[in-house]
Simulated scan of single mutants.
Amino acid sequence: MVRPAFLITIDTEGDNLWQNHDKIDTRNAAFLPRFQSLCEKYGFKPTWLTNYEMAIDPAYIEFAKDVIARNQGEVGMHLHAWNSPPLYDLTGDDWRHKPYLIEYPEDVIRDKVVFMTELLEQTFQTKMLSHRAGRWAFNEYYASLLIELGYQVDCSVTPRVDWRQSPGDPNGQGGTDYRDFPRHAYFIDQQNIARPGSSPLLEVPMSIQYKYSSLMNGFKQGVDRLRGKKRGPSVNWLRPARGNLDKMKRVAEQSLAEGADYVEFMLHSSEFMPGGSPTFKHEADIDQLYADLEQLFDWLQSRTLGMTLAGYHRQFKDAR
């Protein structure tokens, strides 16, 4: 029996985009080889989901070309609409508001997706097969563009999470509501990305589990409503934060116990650099991150088989 896949997805983007509103630096490119080496130590192959500023950074280009040449990972596409060419002023201050790509006019969405795909394919001399939407915002039109351009895998869905309370365009409706989406991999229905269908695009949702029981989640949401707050159920992700090693293991354990044939990990490239994110501010935080990753990867090595998103697509398709 084939072991479940371990999918490492890295949103490869500029430094501390949570707080930088007027400039984008890419110093985090120098910190990525350490993580790549850790993945290779355990036989895992990360998928580097790459956006515009990293795709034109010489240090990252050299790093990613080497990963591809040695078949030790994959480069995919990630797109932040506010700074990805061709530029279009949606809000009057897009760098501050960081609007979702799906909030732009459809012709602008198309131009941006085509531009990024061509840039990545020309830079890295490889077909783009894998994708994650910037800020997790995805819809049917976006999916249709990926299918048209030959993408095989999307990993934008975050089951059990509702992003509508996270604003992009101040006059918009917020992000995508994924609460009722499948938690397993599925070929999407192009008319409704929330359900399986017959398109060639495989959706690989993030590994996310409820933090509390259904009863406790219901109670906490009721309290929030009385306080005038709108929040979804509390969840844990297979995603590092300070001191959450046990929670990450629990997410993986629960997912595998439910019969999942993969677990999906994510982090941002800037989180490997001290000060590159609000979470890991100091060198000591990075050292603790790597200590946790060593333990997580060692624990997963005997339970899973590392592969890229495109590699998982091949296995999933063959199994069907």
Score class of each variant (00 low, 15 high):
287 D>K: 13
132 R>V: 09
164 R>Q: 14
103 E>C: 05
24 I>T: 15
245 L>D: 01
179 R>S: 04
181 F>G: 02
93 D>W: 10
251 V>A: 03
13 E>Y: 12
103 E>P: 10
244 N>H: 06
112 K>G: 12
94 D>M: 02
37 S>I: 00
263 V>T: 10
254 Q>P: 05
246 D>M: 07
119 L>T: 11
8 I>P: 02
304 T>I: 09
248 M>T: 12
282 H>I: 02
132 R>M: 02
130 S>H: 07
92 G>Y: 11
138 F>N: 11
10 I>K: 01
113 V>M: 09
170 P>E: 08
255 S>G: 09
192 N>P: 14
140 E>K: 12
110 R>K: 15
7 L>K: 01
161 V>F: 00
260 A>M: 10
224 D>P: 05
216 M>H: 13
257 A>M: 04
251 V>H: 07
67 V>C: 04
221 Q>M: 13
233 P>E: 08
69 A>H: 07
187 F>K: 04
314 R>Y: 01
30 A>P: 05
168 G>H: 09
128 M>K: 03
41 K>F: 04
48 W>D: 09
242 R>T: 09
268 H>L: 01
294 E>N: 14
96 R>A: 04
278 P>H: 04
196 P>F: 12
185 A>R: 04
151 Y>L: 02
84 S>L: 00
28 N>H: 10
273 M>I: 00
300 L>P: 12
242 R>E: 05
